[in-house]
Simulated scan of single mutants.
Amino acid sequence: MSVLLTLNAGSSSVKFSVYAVAAEPTLMVEGLVDGLGPDARLILRGQDRAPLPLGPTDHAGAMAAILAALAPVLAGRAVAGIGHRIVHGGPAYGAPVVLTPEVLDQLRAFIPLAPLHQPHNLAMVTAAQEAFPDAVQIGCFDTAFHKGHPWVNDTFALPRRFHDAGVRRYGFHGLSYDYITDHLRATDPALAAGRIVIAHLGNGASMCAVRDGQSVGSSMGFSALDGLPMGTRCGQLDPGVLLYLMDQGLSAAEIATLLYTESGLKGLSGISHDMRTLLASDAPEAAEAIDYYVFRIRRELGAMTAVLGGLDGLVFCGGIGEHAAPVRARVIEGMGYLGLTLDAGANDGDARQIGGGPVPILVIPTDEERVIARAVARSLTG
Rank of each mutant, 00 (worst) to 15 (best):
T6H: 11
L7I: 13
S11E: 07
S13E: 00
K15N: 07
A20M: 01
V21G: 04
A22W: 04
V29A: 00
R41G: 09
Q47K: 08
D48T: 13
R49I: 00
G55E: 14
A68P: 07
A69E: 13
A69M: 09
V73H: 03
V73N: 02
R77F: 01
A78C: 05
A80M: 06
H84S: 04
L99I: 05
P101A: 07
P101S: 06
L104Q: 15
D105T: 13
L107G: 06
F110L: 12
L116I: 09
A123F: 02
M124F: 15
A128L: 01
F132V: 01
F132I: 00
G139A: 05
F141C: 10
F141E: 04
D142L: 01
H149N: 04
W151S: 12
N153P: 08
N153W: 10
A157C: 06
R161V: 13
G166L: 01
R169E: 04
L175I: 04
L175K: 02
L175F: 09
R185A: 07
D188A: 14
P189K: 05
A192F: 08
V197D: 11
I198Y: 08
L201D: 14
A205L: 07
C208K: 06
A209F: 12
A209V: 11
G217N: 09
S223V: 03
S223C: 11
L228N: 03
C234V: 09
Q236K: 14
M246V: 14
G249A: 13
E254A: 15
A256N: 14
E262V: 08
S263G: 04
G270K: 11
S272C: 08
H273I: 01
M275L: 11
R276K: 06
R276H: 05
T277Q: 10
T277L: 03
A280T: 12
D282R: 03
A286L: 01
E288C: 10
I290M: 09
F295I: 06
I297E: 02
I297D: 01
R298D: 10
L301V: 02
T305Y: 00
A306I: 09
A306L: 09
G310I: 08
D312I: 13
C317N: 04
H323M: 06
A325Y: 08
V327G: 02
A329T: 10
R330Q: 05
G345K: 01
G345F: 00
G345S: 03
G349Y: 07
A351P: 12
I354A: 12
I354M: 15
V359I: 15
V359A: 10
I364D: 04
A373V: 02
V376C: 14
